[in-house]
């Protein structure tokens, strides 16, 4: 029986270069190809050992896919590969302007809640935050390419703040829907 080894490093597993930019079409294609080969459905008539391996292999594939699909997690993973481990709870941002901006975004969300059409108003704030997030992505791609790891780290920490804002918007929208 032929034996296959699966790399556990996300980019290697998906046959992608170790860089921030990822072609979503290629990513999805690779994901499907890997799943088609290793999904437990392909192993229902095999031994228990092989079934177990299939579960482990697809767990890894799913985790890598989810991580690579999400730009913040992808950036974070790249930093980890470069030896920089982030702690979302403990690492802090000193950038005062940025923190004041965050406060203003929170206020924008609160104002949106007072709007006559709060769901739409929240959507709009979400879109604005998304636009800022997109510029941070391209900034990350640049500093990563220049190997400016400290700045890259700061960007990833900032991205977490924007993600939390989006989570808050979602939570509020769900509450309004219910």
């Amino acid at each position: 029986m032929q034996s296959i080894t699966l790399p556990t490093q996300w980019f290697e597993l998906f046959g992608l270069p170790l860089q921030f930019e990822v072609d979503p079409v290629v990513l999805t294609q690779r994901f499907r190809a890997l799943q088609t080969q290793f999904h437990p459905d392909r192993y229902v008539n095999q031994s228990d050992t092989e079934k177990r391996f299939a579960v482990q292999a697809t767990s890894l594939i799913n985790e890598a896919y989810a991580g690579l699909k999400n730009p913040r997690l992808r950036a974070r993973y790249l930093l980890e590969q470069a030896g920089i481990i982030l702690n979302d709870e403990l690492d802090t941002i000193q950038d005062r302007d940025f923190l004041i901006q965050q406060m203003q975004w929170r206020e924008a969300i609160e104002e949106a809640l007072e709007d006559a059409e709060p769901l739409d108003a929240l959507d709009q704030v979400g879109d604005e935050i998304q636009a800022v997030t997109l510029t941070l992505y391209s900034e990350f791609a640049q500093v990563w390419a220049l190997k400016n790891l400290e700045r890259a780290k700061q960007i990833v920490l900032k991205l977490r703040f924007y993600e939390r804002l989006q989570e808050e918007i979602r939570r509020q929208q769900e509450r309004l829907d219910a």
Binding site: M1, L6, N45, L60
Partner: peptide
């Protein structure tokens, strides 16, 4: 780097009868 070993599906299975 940790590697995951897995055998390729289908390699061992001979053409089989239709299963119910």
């Amino acid at each position: 780097m940790a590697l995951l070993q897995i055998s390729e599906p289908g390699m061992a299975t001979i053409p089989h009868q239709r299963r119910l």
